[in-house]
C-alpha cells in the first residue's frame, strides 16, 4: 500500500529524515518509536504533505504512485489521514460542520454527490458512540476548550468518519489518561480491517498494549535503525534507546 524509499527531508536546509525505507501492506499496524527529535513527527508531516518540510531525495508511493506532487488535500482524498499530535482549534466551526465539510470535499474530489444529511447524522452518532464521546462535543467549536484527551478522541472520531486507507496516529497517547487511552485504542482496533493500515507513532510502549503492532521500527537521528515484531517495544521499554545507538 505505502512504500517509503530512501526518504530525505528537512526544514530550512536542515536535514531531519536521512534515508527512510518502509513498506506497509493492507491490514498491518506499524509502530514507529524513537526518542525526542528523532524525526517521528517530521515523517508523519511529510507523508501528509505539510509544505513546511522539503523532500530532498527519495519517494513516497501510495498504491503504486508517487504522492510527493500532491497537495495535502489531494493526499487526504486518496485516503491518508493524520491524527495530529496537537490538533488545532477552529472557533465557531462545530465538529459536525467540520467533518461534514471534510467528507463532502472528499466525495466531490471522487466525483460523488454530497453525503445525504440523514445518513451522515446516523454515521456521526454511531462513531461518536464507538468512541464513547459525549454528543455535545459535536456541536461545540472544533477543539475549542477541549481537554487534551478530548482533542485526541475527536481526532479518532474524524478518522472513523473519513474511513481512511492509511491512518497515521502521531503521539495519540499523549495527554490521555488510562481510561481514555483504552477507549481510543478500542476505537482504533474496531476500525481496523484487512484493507486499511495504521502507523502508530509513540514514545512509550504503553499504547502498544492496547493497539498491538505487527511491526515495530526504531527511528533514531532520521533513520530506522532497527525493526522487529511487537516484542521490540517491550525491549525498548526495558532498556531504553541507548543500546541501539
Amino acid at each position: 500500500m505505502l512504500q517509503i524509499k530512501n526518504l530525505h527531508a528537512g526544514i530550512e536546509g536542515k536535514e531531519i529524515l536521512r534515508g527512510i525505507n518502509l513498506e506497509i501492506n493492507p491490514g498491518e499496524v506499524h509502530a514507529i518509536m524513537g526518542p525526542n527529535g528523532s524525526g517521528k513527527s517530521t515523517l508523519s508531516s511529510v507523508i501528509a504533505g505539510n509544505e513546511t518540510y522539503k523532500v530532498t531525495e527519495g519517494d513516497v508511493i501510495l498504491d503504486g504512485k508517487s504522492i510527493l506532487d500532491l497537495s495535502p488535500d489531494q493526499r487526504a482524498h486518496k485516503g491518508i489521514f493524520l491524527s495530529f499530535q496537537y490538533p488545532v482549534e477552529i472557533p465557531g466551526v462545530t465538529t459536525t460542520n467540520f467533518i461534514k465539510t471534510a467528507i463532502n470535499a472528499k466525495r466531490k474530489a471522487l466525483g460523488l454527490d454530497d453525503f445525504p444529511a440523514k445518513e451522515m447524522l446516523k454515521m456521526i452518532r454511531e462513531k461518536a458512540d464507538l468512541l464513547e464521546m459525549d454528543r455535545k462535543f459535536l456541536s461545540r467549536s472544533l477543539n475549542e476548550g477541549f481537554s487534551g484527551g478530548e482533542k485526541k478522541r475527536n481526532e479518532i472520531f474524524q478518522m472513523a468518519m473519513l474511513e481512511p486507507k492509511l491512518s497515521i496516529l502521531d503521539e495519540t497517547d499523549s495527554g490521555l489518561d488510562i481510561d481514555a487511552l483504552k477507549i481510543v485504542a478500542n476505537g482504533v482496533n474496531k476500525l481496523k480491517s484487512k484493507d486499511n493500515a495504521t502507523i502508530v507513532i509513540t514514545h512509550y510502549q504503553r499504547l502498544l498494549d492496547y493497539i498491538v503492532p505487527d511491526f515495530v521500527h526504531v527511528l533514531y537521528n532520521g533513520k530506522i535503525i532497527k525493526s522487529g515484531g511487537k516484542e521490540l517495544a517491550f525491549e525498548l521499554e526495558e532498556k531504553g534507546y541507548d543500546w541501539l545507538k
Partner: peptide, 24 residues
C-alpha cells in the same frame, strides 16, 4: 497550522478560509 489541518482532512485552502471566516 489551521490551514494544514483542514487540508489534511481533504478541505482545500480556499474552502478552509471560508470555513474559518464563517466560524469567526
Amino acid at each position: 497550522d489551521q490551514l494544514f489541518y483542514c487540508n489534511q482532512r481533504g478541505i482545500d485552502t480556499e474552502k478552509a478560509i471560508a470555513l474559518i471566516v464563517n466560524g469567526f
